[in-house]
Amino acid sequence: MAMQIEFKSVSADYQLGPIKSKNVLKDVNLKIKTNRVTVIIGKTGSGKSTLLKLMNGLILPTSGEVKIDEHVIHSKVNKQTLKNIRADLGMVFQFPEAQLFAETVLDDIMFGPLNFGDTQESAKEKAKEVITQVGLSESIFTKSPLELSGGQKRRVAIAGVLATHPKSLILDEPGAGLDPSSKKKILDFLKSWQIRKNATMVMVTHDIEEVVNYADDLIVMKNGEIIFHDSVYSILSNLSPDNQWGIALPEARLLQLELEKKLGFKFDKICLTANQLAEQIERKGLA
C-alpha cells in the first residue's frame, strides 16, 4: 500500500547549540508522489536532512503540519502517533552502521520488529526474509555486527530497518562512504525492494549519477526552500552545465553536449544515462 507524504507550509528550526537555533525550513509545501523514488539534492545545510527527519517526527515543525496518510505531525503531536508513523515509515540514517549494538547480527535485525510489537518467532522470520534481500546469507546471523566489513555493516543496518516491514522508506545518503561496488549493490537492492513492494521511497544524495540511475522524481533544495520538484528528466534536461543553481549534470549528459559541440549536430533526445546515450549514438548511425 502506498503512503501519502505531504507537507503543508512547514517551517522548522535546527538547534545549533544551547542558545542558537537556525531556521532551516521556510514554509515548505510538498506532496511526494506515491510508489516512486524521490531523491532530494542540495548543498550541505540546505535542509535536506531536516526535511527527512520531519517525515517521521524526529524533528517537529515549528509551524505548519506534515501529513503521513491519516496521521498529522505538528508541533504538539503525541508519542503514540509518532510510534504509529515510525512503524510504517522506515528510516535509514546516514552511516546507519553507527546504530548497530546487539551481540549478534540476528538480534540487531530483530530489534526493530520486536519494538513494534512482533513476537520472537515472527521477528526471526522477518530477519531471515530481509537478510537475503540485502544480499547476505543467514550464516552471518551468529556473527557480531562489529566484526563485519563496512559494506556488510551497512547492509545489516538497512536490513534492520527493512525487517520492520515499512510501507515507505526514507534514506539519508545510503551509499555514503562505501566503495563503488558496495554502493551499487546497496542501491540496486533498495531499488528492487521499492519496485517489488511498490513502495514510496525518499532518499537524500550528493551524487547526480545516483539520481539519474535510481530516481523518478527530484527535489532540489536551497537555503531551506524547495526550488525544483519534478521528474528527474524534466528538471535535468532543461539545465545547462553552468546553471545558476550549481546543479551538476550526469557524465552522460555532459558527454552528449560535448559530442554535439564537436560534431556539430543535435541528438533527438536528451540523455541522462550511459544507456540512453549509447542508444542515441546507435540510432544516429555513429557507432
Binding site: G17, K53, N56, L58, K79, K83, R86, A87, G90, M91, F93, P96, A98, Q99, F111, G112, N115, F116, G160, V161, T164
Partner: peptide
C-alpha cells in the same frame, strides 16, 4: 564533549526510528 553529544543525539534518533521510546 560536543562531538559526543551530537553523536548521542544521532544514535538516539536512529534507535527511535526503529521504535525505541525513551522516558517510558
Amino acid at each position: 564533549i560536543p562531538t559526543l553529544l551530537d553523536e548521542t543525539e544521532r544514535v538516539m534518533q536512529a534507535q527511535m526510528a526503529r521504535g525505541v521510546t525513551f522516558g517510558e
